[in-house]
Write a protein that binds this DNA or RNA. Structure first.
Lengths: 219, 219
DNA sequence: GACGATTTGGACAAGCCTGTCTAAAAATAT
DNA sequence: ATATTTTTAGACAGGCTTGTCCAAATCGTC
């Protein structure tokens, strides 16, 4: 009754490839047009798939949105986790390494395609379907801030920083990193590698002027 | 041929009251539902007006959106200008006065009903109708930043601040002021007066740690 | 009270979109 | 090669929305 293993995964692969393609196209269209304005024919066309196939895979327009949001938040969370692991815990040149870290953060999480999509979907559909994002809301930014705050606290303990409140400092770091990019992002402009580095450099310079110490006490 | 003055302004008053009511309702609906999802019947109902009257006043759905955006950007610009005039040019207690200024900025411009609407409309329709916001884009944030930067530069000249680049400092000031409110705003939560003051206090403390001088040289 | 303009409610056509159905086509595994 | 499953293209009903038209009603002024 159950088929052999090989055919199953072969079917699943094609199946999953189409599924992924649909999710990708849907993310783009939902993001551009909003949920109400999104046209399933257009999604199907952009996915290179017939409309019926979209319905076969996800059943409903609303269901499709749910799947898209789940996919994106999962990828975002993975990206944040991965990038957070590259935080300079044992810096040699703190300023340079924080700048690199900030650039990675922007490239992998905030200025990302996924980051842009999540931000936009959140803004357009967040109030209408609050339960859609409630999972991310609980496990997303709060955890990121806490993790970043812990890193900064460790840096402070090692004598690199002078912090009153690591949580506040973490939020301020993220805010500063985005300071020069907000307008570009809100207008949907693309940001060059150059702009990204300059923004990160400005942010880190300000951050270290506020919270940096001249030398770690260990040296 | 031309009627007397009184009837004219009386007619215009009722006319303009309805017009304003429609614009107000339309702003709310466009913002909640997006352009595609906005229902003109709903706008009319929320404005307390018949659908036909909406068409009489603004002709077209797209036209209505244009009118809404124009109205909001004009009000926002006025609010920014007004608030900017309350910048502490001759401070006694710089930290306290900057905190007050930041609170005003948030209340009158950023966390405002208008501010929220503009942000959301910009995000949802900005890429589809770029020319809609091009006017604000040119004359809005850039001018605000420049004006704020000039104030900071004057403060630096008076010995209160130590700035490399006033423009960067102005952007960072605004970014810091929003640091603690971003999540609340993105989720559409309302922010209490308390949160607003706390956020402003955190922002100003960080800003002054980075750029403040102990005393102005004039004293 | 009469007059002119505005507003109203409802009817209406036209278009678009969702979601379903069906039969043909394509792809895959055996 | 055949059988099974997936995919496709198209038609289709149903619903909703925009924008227009029109006759009745309302409002403010003379």
């Amino acid at each position: 009754m159950t088929p052999a293993i090989a055919p199953d995964i072969a079917v699943v692969r094609s199946h999953s490839a189409k599924r992924h393609s649909i999710l990708d196209a849907a993310a783009g269209v939902f993001c551009r047009e909003g949920f109400a304005g999104a046209n399933i024919d257009l999604i199907a066309a952009e996915a290179g798939v017939s409309r019926q196939t979209v319905y076969n895979h996800h059943g409903d327009k609303e269901n499709l949105l749910v799947a898209v949001v789940r996919e994106i938040t999962e990828r975002i969370n993975a990206g944040v986790f991965e990038t957070l692991a590259t935080f300079p815990d044992k810096p040699v040149n703190l300023e340079a390494e924080l700048v690199d870290f900030a650039v990675r953060l922007n490239q992998n999480c905030l200025c990302n395609r996924d980051g842009k999509f999540l931000r936009k979907l959140l803004q357009t559909e967040g109030e209408r379907y609050p339960e859609l994002f409630s999972g991310w809301r609980e496990h997303g930014p709060a955890k990121t801030w806490a993790a970043l705050a812990a890193r900064f606290a460790r840096l402070a303990h090692a004598g690199w920083l002078d912090l009153d409140d690591p949580d506040v400092a973490a939020r301020q770091f993220l805010a500063l990193v985005n300071a020069d990019l907000q307008m570009a992002m809100i207008f949907g402009d693309s940001v060059s590698e150059e702009q990204l580095r300059a923004a990160a450099a400005n942010a880190v310079r300000c951050f270290l002027r506020a919270y940096g110490k001249a030398r770690p006490h260990g040296t």
